[in-house]
């Protein structure tokens, strides 16, 4: 499924990818959105092992047993007013991007990033709107360094 308007991130309050959500047969979220990888190909970069999630997923599918690492209220992170305001700025930035108003795009993205500094869907996800390579550019390297030097987990 393609999601150019990023409705999945909005609906599930995702702040990075890859993020997985488990949904049962009744349409109930049984494991809150969280990072998971299918392999350890980039483990040196992100430090998240794939095996625990893969094993838990297999157990759930085959036996119905859920892991106990999902929060009781289904929410790993409660979005704050500031984060919601950031998303409102992001929507304006997207509109400005459609119109080719680069200065306006840059201003609203800066506001959104200041309000939601942990949200990579804003900070990394909007780099292409500014003509910045989100994979190898100096801007991305600087963002990753800022994160790492602060001792924070990359994906949460």
């Amino acid at each position: 499924m393609l999601d150019p308007e990023r409705v999945v991130a909005e609906a599930f309050a995702m702040i990075n990818v890859p993020t997985v959500v488990w949904i049962d047969e009744d349409g109930r979220v049984v494991r809150a959105p969280d990072v998971a990888f299918a392999s350890d190909a980039f483990i040196g970069f992100h430090g998240v092992e794939s095996a625990p999630h893969t094993a838990a997923l297999r157990r759930w599918v085959t036996t119905g047993v859920l892991p106990d690492d999902s929060p009781d209220d289904g929410v790993h992170r409660a979005p704050s007013h500031e984060e919601q305001l950031a998303r409102a700025h992001l929507a304006v930035a997207r509109e400005a991007h459609r119109r080719g108003e680069e200065v306006v795009v840059r201003w609203h993205i800066a506001r959104a990033a200041a309000l939601a500094p942990d949200d990579w869907t804003i900070r990394r996800g909007t780099m292409p709107w500014l003509g910045v390579d989100p994979m190898t550019s100096d801007e991305f390297v600087a963002l990753f360094a800022e994160w790492s030097e602060a001792g924070r987990k990359y994906y949460r």
Binding site: F12, V17, P18, V21, W22, I23, D24
Partner: peptide, 9 residues
Amino acid sequence: RKVMLLAFA
């Protein structure tokens, strides 16, 4: 059906 929704970018 059980669903695992994976968001990637």
